[in-house]
């Protein structure tokens, strides 16, 4: 099989798709804006539900793309693209022009900037961190407060920047609940003495083995789950964090002092993706992610023939789903090359 494909974005979806496309005999150009491949996967210490190290998956993906058919352009952004006849012409930020028969966008997601929820005090109070900051701590092995002490009481807030009309994100980011459970367990493992409290609106444990992890968190690790969204974070005289929530099941307001507060930041359409959507007149949904041409059998297809999507640029997804989505994109691209394009 012959033909050329440009894959924009070298995260999980981009790497998996590039590897599979190359195997099918297509020549692939993989463009990644960062110096290194891997995208958000590089930030993850352990993955849920089995707490496999993120590096393991990353190295599998890296092995995928060591292939003669793949040309790598890292540290290179995409400025825009045009479709001339059946050909795509992609302009890179450094001025290169790449021609291709098909394009696959795997531009991924951006983490919700938690400063936007000012009442949670991220960027204002020292000991308010995000889930991503915590993964970094797990990486370094040093879980501590700003003053170097080990936290003893830790709160986790679900749904920060997801399911929130106030920040314009009405959708559920899907991963935060299970991430919270995973991180709570890991915190408990790392700091034996600490107490962990999860503040949730709904526990959405729909994925394979998620519910089991939730149960484990309760039974084995004694994590407390409180149904109520945190509405305000402040500090007391001794600079300890104080959160306000309603314990909706008890029906009473709840105040709690905490050493560390972890915000489960949601996923948002990436800024790069939005730029490309604007430049290429690609349709986006109400949630600002790329809109697939069909929800059931066209989840990889766009409104432009020959341009495909894979991964979290279309909706929040976990690693498993992202890899599957990348593979289904590859099969769509191969079909396109074989029949539709001619």
């Amino acid at each position: 099989m012959t033909g050329s494909v440009v894959v924009v974005g070298g995260g999980t979806a981009g790497m998996e798709a590039a590897g599979q496309l190359a195997k099918a005999g297509l020549s692939v150009t993989l463009i990644e804006k960062e110096k290194y491949l891997g995208g958000h996967l590089r930030e993850w210490h352990h993955l849920f539900p089995d707490r496999r190290p993120g590096d393991e998956v990353l190295s599998y993906l890296k092995n995928q793309i060591i292939h003669n058919n793949i040309r790598l352009l890292t540290g290179e952004g995409v400025e825009g693209f045009q479709k001339r006849g059946n050909d795509f012409i992609i302009n890179t930020r450094s001025g290169d022009v790449v021609k291709a028969d098909a394009v696959l966008l795997t531009t991924g997601f951006d983490l919700f900037r938690s400063e936007r929820k000012e009442e949670y005090g991220y960027g204002i109070y020292d000991n308010v961190i995000t889930s991503s900051d915590l993964e970094e701590m797990f990486h370094s092995g040093e879980i501590m407060m700003k003053n170097g002490e080990k936290p003893e009481k830790i709160g986790i807030v679900h749904c920060v920047g997801s399911r929130d009309e106030k920040v314009g994100n009405l959708y559920c980011s899907k991963l935060c609940c299970v991430t919270a459970v995973k991180q709570a367990i890991e915190l408990k493992e790392a700091l034996n003495k600490c107490k962990v409290f999860c503040f949730y609106m709904d526990m959405r444990m729909g994925g394979a083995l998620y519910e089991e992890l939730y149960r484990e968190a309760q039974e084995k690790y004694g994590i407390t789950f409180i149904r109520g969204k945190v509405s305000e974070v402040g500090v007391n005289f001794s600079k300890r964090l104080v959160i306000k929530a309603e314990d909706t099941l008890a029906g009473r307001p709840l105040k709690m002092e905490l050493d560390l507060l972890v915000l489960m930041a949601g996923m948002e359409m990436s800024a790069e993706g939005l730029k490309l959507a604007e430049a290429g007149k690609l349709e986006i949904g109400e949630n600002r992610f790329f809109a697939a041409s069909d929800n059931h059998f066209g989840s990889n297809k766009s409104n432009l023939k020959g341009l495909f999507y894979a991964g979290t640029c279309t909706a929040p997804m976990n690693i498993t789903e992202t890899i599957s989505h990348a593979r289904s994109a590859v099969s769509d691209i191969i079909n396109y090359m074989n029949s539709d394009r001619k």
């Binding site: 000012e118 009442e119 005090g121 204002i124 109070y125 305000e232 974070v233 402040g234």
Partner: peptide, 9 residues
């Protein structure tokens, strides 16, 4: 202002 802690601080 209690919802904008930066102003309080």
């Amino acid at each position: 202002t209690h919802l904008t802690p930066s102003i309080k601080i």
